[in-house]
Design a protein around this nucleic acid. Structure first.
Length: 252
DNA sequence: ACGCTCCCGCTGTAACTCCC
DNA sequence: GGGAGTTACAGCGGGAGCGT
């Protein structure tokens, strides 16, 4: 019925003969739009997949969920039982990440590494993944807990160079917690590394409740692609009374 | 429509390290 | 020693997928 309301028909969207395992692009788009914008129930996609044996997927960006390498599958299977589901998930993500980088666990971890070990190649891969590829900070904790390793994070101490940014830090509200100060600090440093500055992104006079678009984009990019802590957005909102939103919120 | 599970992102506090 | 700054961690909530 939704299709007809849109002036469309099934045969326009699905190439004749599409069968088991097919993924008709036009149909996928129509289904996803119907769900997103026209109030179709989210299960519509699953229903169509079941009915026709298709493999339609959601249009939100999804990463591959399971590792391909047998070695990695085995690793996941043999994790200690008491490891929480959350850490299991982080580890899963990390192994997928490794494969995307063309690497594997056994390349990074010398055979026989046991409790207390600190395999350098692994440590580096984890830190890089966290800093540059959007892995969660708790990935390190997950690996440490699962294998008894003692991986550490990289320490950088940086302060902004621009006077503008130094002034900004000096004038943060007193009640702002240290964690949030740190996040704002890191963000300003990040901006400078990108050749940008606060005043380029934030229109003068932006006050409580504002949502400067350029700033929002810079923050979300920094979090997703440059390893800024996820608190950074919250920190900036607290510090300046802004109402920046996450990519997830904007999707929804 | 609803329940359940899995997976993931967001937030804020706890616990740590660094440096004067 | 203590303040400033950083990282680890836990809890929460929500989307997706699947079944009923």
């Amino acid at each position: 019925m939704h299709l007809e309301e849109q002036g469309q028909s099934w045969s326009q969207l699905v190439v004749a003969g599409s069968g088991e395992g097919a993924r008709p692009a036009a149909l996928e788009q129509a289904v996803n739009e119907g769900i997103r914008h026209h109030g179709l129930p989210p299960s519509t996609r699953a229903a169509i997949n079941q009915a026709f044996g298709f493999r339609l997927q959601s249009d939100i960006k999804r990463v591959r969920l399971m590792p391909d390498l047998q070695e990695h599958k085995d690793l996941l299977k043999d994790l200690p039982e008491e490891l929480g589901q959350e850490y299991h998930s982080r580890l899963n993500r990390f192994l997928v990440h490794l494969e995307e980088q063309g690497q594997s666990w056994s390349q990074l971890v010398p055979a026989g590494s046991g409790a207390g070990a600190r395999p350098t190649a692994l440590e580096q891969a984890v830190s890089e993944g966290i800093r540059h590829h959007g892995l969660q900070t708790s990935t390190r904790a997950a690996i440490n807990q699962a294998f008894g390793f003692r991986l550490q994070g990289e320490r950088v101490r940086l302060a902004p160079d621009l006077q503008e940014h130094k002034d900004l830090l000096k004038d943060l509200p007193e009640e702002l917690t240290q964690v949030y100060r740190s996040c704002v600090n890191r963000f300003l440093v990040h901006l400078e590394e990108q050749g940008q500055s606060w005043s380029q992104l934030v229109p003068t006079g932006s006050g409580a409740g504002a949502r400067p678009a350029a700033l929002e984009q810079a923050v979300n990019e920094g979090i997703r692609h440059h390893g800024l802590q996820t608190n950074t957005r919250a920190a900036i909102n607290r510090a300046f009374g802004f109402d920046l939103q996450s990519e997830a919120e904007m999707r929804g």
